[in-house]
Simulated assay, not measured.
Amino acid sequence: MDKIAVMGDYDSIYGFGALGMELFPTDEDEDPAGTLRRLAQSGYGIIYITEAVCLELAETIEEYRERVSPAIVPIPGISGDTKVGVDAVKRSVEQAVGSDILFSQN
């Protein structure tokens, strides 16, 4: 089984430790992009990242978008939902299907 990591501010991610996921707080991380690259190269199959950190690491995350592993999944942090996760899923579906499935014609 692949390892699962969670990156973000400590207050947003500490609860995931109880589920057996490895925590990587970015509060004092001087190089979160380097941390993400290290996790991707170290056998982590899923990396959950708070939406605030996703915005900060957009270019680095884009490097892994076409790869099967790791799956980088945005999650809301304690500051709330910024819709980064929904937008990422929407882009992936549009790319796979060739159409915006959330667009409704009235």
Rank of each mutant, 00 (worst) to 15 (best):
T50D: 01
L23Y: 03
V89Q: 07
G80D: 14
G34Q: 03
S12M: 01
R38S: 12
Y10K: 10
E59C: 09
F103C: 07
F24M: 05
S12D: 07
I61E: 03
M1H: 13
K3D: 12
I4Y: 01
I47T: 04
S79P: 07
E30F: 10
L102Y: 15
F16E: 05
G17S: 11
L23C: 05
G43C: 06
G98M: 08
A40L: 04
E28I: 13
P25R: 04
G85C: 13
C54G: 09
A5P: 04
T82P: 08
Y48E: 02
A71D: 08
S42K: 00
S12W: 00
I46W: 07
Y10C: 06
Y64S: 10
V86T: 14
A33G: 12
E56G: 12
G45P: 04
Y48S: 05
I61T: 11
L55M: 14
D11K: 08
A40Y: 01
R67A: 15
G43Y: 07
I49Y: 05
A71H: 10
D11M: 11
Q95H: 13
E62V: 08
T50P: 02
D100F: 02
I72E: 00
T50G: 06
V73C: 00
S79E: 12
E66W: 12
L55D: 13
Q95P: 04
A52P: 03
I78A: 09
Q95S: 15
E28G: 11
G85D: 14
I4E: 05
D2N: 10
A58G: 02
K90S: 14
K90R: 14
D31S: 13
G77Y: 06
P70H: 10
A58D: 10
R38N: 13
Y44H: 07
I75R: 02
E63S: 14
A5E: 02
V6N: 06
T35L: 00
L57I: 13
G45N: 03
R67L: 15
D27G: 10
D27Q: 10
G34N: 06
V53S: 09
Y44P: 05
S104E: 15
S42C: 04
Y64I: 10
V6H: 07
L57C: 09
I61C: 08
D9T: 06
T60P: 06
A88S: 15
I46V: 14
E30P: 10
E63V: 13
A33M: 08
D87N: 15
S69H: 08
G98E: 00
R67N: 13
A96L: 09
Y64V: 12
P32R: 03
R37N: 12
V97Q: 03
Y64T: 09
